[in-house]
Design a protein around this nucleic acid. Structure first.
Length: 578
DNA sequence: GAGTTTGAAACT
DNA sequence: CAGTTTCAAACTC
């Protein structure tokens, strides 16, 4: 009620008097029917209000609507509107099929902007059939919706004007027991009820039942379930058993089942390796599962995929796998994915897991640093020779080389050391230390990363890249050194990546062939089989001389001569990642 | 349309 | 809060 009041109070220009709800609590509320608003933005407990009036505390008026509403319309029976109409109505985003009027949804309850879609033949309003409650308990749909019974099939009905006193007393008792009794059950944007079972595929995922359902036998897939009835998925609020109103539609499940067969080989293998395949996690109380479903439906990407016995795929974010540095994370052994959860959960595990260790990455970085230094030295020597040829040739080659090295490295060092500069200029300095070729490559990568971004951003990015390249093209000859550095580093890095790809392909091929041999075993003895297969693959890798091997580098390589460096690098390259 | 099933509401 | 009863809608035949 507090929320309702707040929502209403926020609506500007309300012109209709509200019921003093505190009076209703005391059982002495006075309903002034003539003053009730003709439009409401509050969602009643039900979605299918018949005509007639409803308790004023359920009515909230949209000022703009009341102002523009013709008199004839304003005089019509009360209308119930979803609370989400405070904001743009979500129904506008739903498929047309969702806009069809269910037998529980009164034509008036639909948004006015959709009037023209499917309303040529308004359906009959819901009528209660109460016999023993006198329509003065929440069993009665009309009463629960806050409206008088009108044309219902109820017996001994007291939910009418003639029994207003009794009605108000009943309201007071109910509110005393549960102040939220007449509040909307659905937290947000429920849009009508399901027309039929055929509409299962049209599950509306927005909204949540405030109390949650307690279904036991219906699987929450029948209209007995209030969540299902309101086109929402069960949530953590629910205490239902064997809930099936958790995930995407049956169509999705069918699709996922098909995909399961197709990708079974690869993903089951990876999942089995992680040891995550166990007994069925399809229990009865599935709060965790519901939370997963909520994640899915909220649009989160995922790196993990789960297959349970019913063939439902579920995805869960692995914060490590979704790290912002995919390249680095792909290098590191995926220990996070080797977690074994209690539930049935198969996690994706990189084929390179246990092959690439952090020290490999470390060593690779060291190698690249060495390469960078070698490039500087090589370039310095070359430039020294050229200078000597051009000039008098009296300079000591080693001194010249050293000087050139300083010159070359200075801007890079400056860029890193000058922390007083603003972030924006840091980026600019960093870019200035790169060659135009590298910048062009970076721009290409940026474009790819921005594919999902707006066109505007991409255009701006391209302009920036072009500007940077243009500036660098006009700069001094130091770009030659940078270029050489980058050529060496990138070439080496490319080679390493190729090695990794090859290694991954080999492992994949092996897993595929093994998984095809014993697919059943993957499911039954998942973890154990996976470990055994992993060992088998590793032995095969060893047999094929594809052994991940750490490289050893040291800064002493800087002191090597060109010939020595080349020789040393050749060795390093050879043993980086065979 | 009658009977059954189901789950929310009401009650203890 | 949990268990039981009441109730009416949903469902089946």
């Amino acid at each position: 009620m507090e929320q309702s009041e707040a929502a209403f109070d926020s609506a500007p220009g309300r012109s209709v008097r509200q019921l003093d709800f505190t009076a209703a609590r005391g059982g002495t509320a006075h309903l002034k029917l003539s003053q009730w608003p003709s439009q409401s933005i509050m969602q009643p407990p039900c979605q299918s209000p018949p005509t007639q009036v409803k308790p004023p505390w359920l009515y909230r008026q949209i000022a703009s609507q009341s102002q523009v509403m013709p008199q004839s319309q304003a005089a019509q029976p009360q209308q119930l509107v979803s609370p989400v109409r405070l904001t743009p109505h979500p129904v506008q985003k739903l498929p047309v099929k969702m806009l069809q009027v269910s037998k529980q949804e009164s034509p008036e309850s639909r948004p006015r902007q959709n009037v023209g879609l499917k309303e040529s033949t308004p359906k009959k309003q819901k009528q209660c059939n109460c016999k023993n409650s006198r329509c003065l308990k929440l069993y009665c749909e009309c009463f629960a919706c806050g409206i008088y019974c009108d044309g219902c099939n109820c017996v001994n009905c007291h939910n009418d004007v003639d029994n207003e006193a009794a009605r108000q007393e009943a309201v007071g008792i109910i509110l005393e027991r549960n102040p939220n009794a007449f509040k909307p059950k659905i937290a947000s944007s429920p849009q009508g009820s399901r027309e039929s079972k055929e509409d299962v595929s049209e599950i509306q995922v927005v909204g949540k039942h405030n109390k949650g359902c307690h279904c036991k036998k219906s699987g929450c897939l029948k209209k007995y379930c209030e969540c299902f009835q309101n086109n929402i998925l069960c949530s953590e609020n629910c205490k239902c058993m064997d809930c099936k109103n958790l995930e995407l539609s049956d169509q999705h499940r069918a699709v996922f089942n098909e995909e399961q067969n197709l990708v079974c080989t690869k993903q089951a293998a990876n999942a089995a390796i992680s040891g995550a395949v166990g007994s069925s996690g399809y229990g009865t109380q599935t709060v965790a599962k519901k939370r997963k479903a909520q994640k899915i439906l909220s649009g989160n990407s995922a790196t993990d995929q789960t297959v349970n016995q019913t063939g439902h795929y579920q995805q869960e974010i692995d914060p490590i796998a979704s790290s912002p540095s995919p390249l680095l994370s792909s290098f590191v052994s995926d220990t996070a994915n080797t977690r074994i959860s209690g539930s049935l959960r198969s996690t994706y595990r990189s084929l390179l897991a246990d092959v690439l260790q952090p020290e490999n990455v470390k060593n690779l970085c060291s190698l690249l640093v060495v390469l960078s230094g070698v490039a500087v030295t090589t370039n310095a020597v070359t430039r020294g020779k050229v200078d000597r040829q051009i000039q008098t040739g009296k300079f000591d080659a080693s001194l010249q080389s050293l000087q050139n090295t300083r010159d070359v490295q200075k801007p890079v060092c400056d860029d890193h050391m000058n922390k007083d500069e603003a972030v924006g200029t840091d980026i600019g300095n960093y870019n200035r230390s790169l060659s135009p070729e590298t910048l062009a490559l970076m721009c290409d990568e940026q474009d790819e990363m921005l594919l999902s971004n707006s066109l505007e951003n991409r255009v701006a990015s391209n302009i920036n890249c072009q500007n940077m390249i243009q500036k660098l093209s006009n700069s001094d000859g130091r770009t030659d050194v940078y270029g050489e550095q980058e050529r060496l580093v990138l070439t080496k890095f490319r080679d390493v990546l190729h090695e990794l790809i090859t290694l991954g392909n080999v492992k994949e091929t092996m897993f595929t062939s093994l998984a095809k041999k014993e697919p059943a075993e993957y499911v039954t003895n998942g973890a154990e089989t996976a470990i055994r297969m992993e060992k088998e693959i590793q032995s095969n890798c060893i047999a094929n001389c594809i052994i991940p091997e750490s490289i050893e580098t040291s800064q002493t390589n800087y002191a090597l001569t060109n010939d020595h460096v080349n020789t040393d690098l050749s060795l390093k390259v050879a043993c980086t990642l065979k």
